[in-house]
Design a protein around this nucleic acid. Sequence first.
DNA 1: TTATAAAAAACAGTCGTTCGTTTTTGTATG
DNA 2: CATACAAAAACGAACGACTGTTTTTTATAA
Lengths: 216, 216
Amino acid sequence: MPKLSQEVVEEKKDHIEQAAKKLFIKHGFHGTSIRQIASQAGVSLGNLYNYYKTKEEILESLISRYESIITERFNDVFSQIEEPLLPENFVKLGKLLQGVVEDHSEFWLLMYIDVLEFDNQHCRKFFQGLAKKFGQRFDKHFYKLKKQKLLNEEVDPAVGFTVAYLQFLNYFLIEKLFGGNHHLGLDNDEAVLKLTELFCRGLLCPEALEENLFHN
Amino acid sequence: MPKLSQEVVEEKKDHIEQAAKKLFIKHGFHGTSIRQIASQAGVSLGNLYNYYKTKEEILESLISRYESIITERFNDVFSQIEEPLLPENFVKLGKLLQGVVEDHSEFWLLMYIDVLEFDNQHCRKFFQGLAKKFGQRFDKHFYKLKKQKLLNEEVDPAVGFTVAYLQFLNYFLIEKLFGGNHHLGLDNDEAVLKLTELFCRGLLCPEALEENLFHN
DNA sequence: TTATAAAAAACAGTCGTTCGTTTTTGTATG
DNA sequence: CATACAAAAACGAACGACTGTTTTTTATAA
């Protein structure tokens, strides 16, 4: 039998890893056996070891494959948002991130596996220098707003955007994976609107922020 | 041998569960064996089954025990904050929650185990009706501010406070468990200050929010 | 002595991995 | 065009260690 082409190998690995993913996110890494993976993928036990040296390598390959998908998806999201600090674009961001979580909540489950069993070795890059990355991506937009003095000078817009991004993700993850059940007491659309309002305007009126007004 | 008193039993269970916790958060539920737990606790394998019917019961007991500790700790935090929407109290909240995460990050690891392997059955109450709970706890404070018209009327103060609470927790969890490594590009104290600023004032200047100003 | 706790041994499976074998298939040969 | 060959892929039995749980035995203290 001739050697399989690189793409065919990748296809087969992808097929195996889809099966593995299904089991890992349901029973965890140690809760899933190689036999189950093989069976789920319709492949023999021994043959798995032609593609992966160890069980852990399956998880690693799966995560890095998924990471590309997620990264691409996020790039797609951000490419739809040119001016991220417009209120209407916060709303748009929220809804797009809702879609990401709904389509790929498994990715975060894999991340929790990684956190638990591998000290988040494989997924930590996801958070490294997050604000800096956004700062670079939306460089010109942030600079323009800054120059126009439309921003609260106390907060770096990159930090603000990162916070909003994380908050949206977190909100939908709590809803999807943690059983939040409308934990803010709002439906999802309202939540996105209220979060947007909060990020843009803040919680307090300008008058309240003159400290003396608060202390009476 | 006479029957052990209820408190002695609870002490022994606590001791066993401390050992179990150590192992569970390191290797996950299925990655930890009963023998390891017994050995770590300095108890015989068979004797464990005098205290728990199954391995899962150890985790359940551990989680519910930890839940009480965490709940108490949170109550302690909130009792230190009478007027949660004062900017200086946001800062205080942030620092207190930093302490909670630093002291009890294991609780969240257990929660991720619960999410992964038990659909968050045991921990989901943590998020249920969160905003409502805060709304009730800080009832009078929120009402007072509302009456004084110091609040952004677009956002329920309970929702705003819940969001801030979750954001602080999430920030420190990312730092502690997910390898964030100053993901906002700030040290922790700065991050608390900037988050506070963001929650109170928002990201945009009042002038920016008149939409026409934005679209030129 | 007796009820109970603790320990040890036994049980029936399952685990990740290895390995010898069989099947498959493109290529080279006649 | 048919055959033989060889390399690769697929398979599944076997290995030794380990699994959660049950049962049996021993130690302990009123």
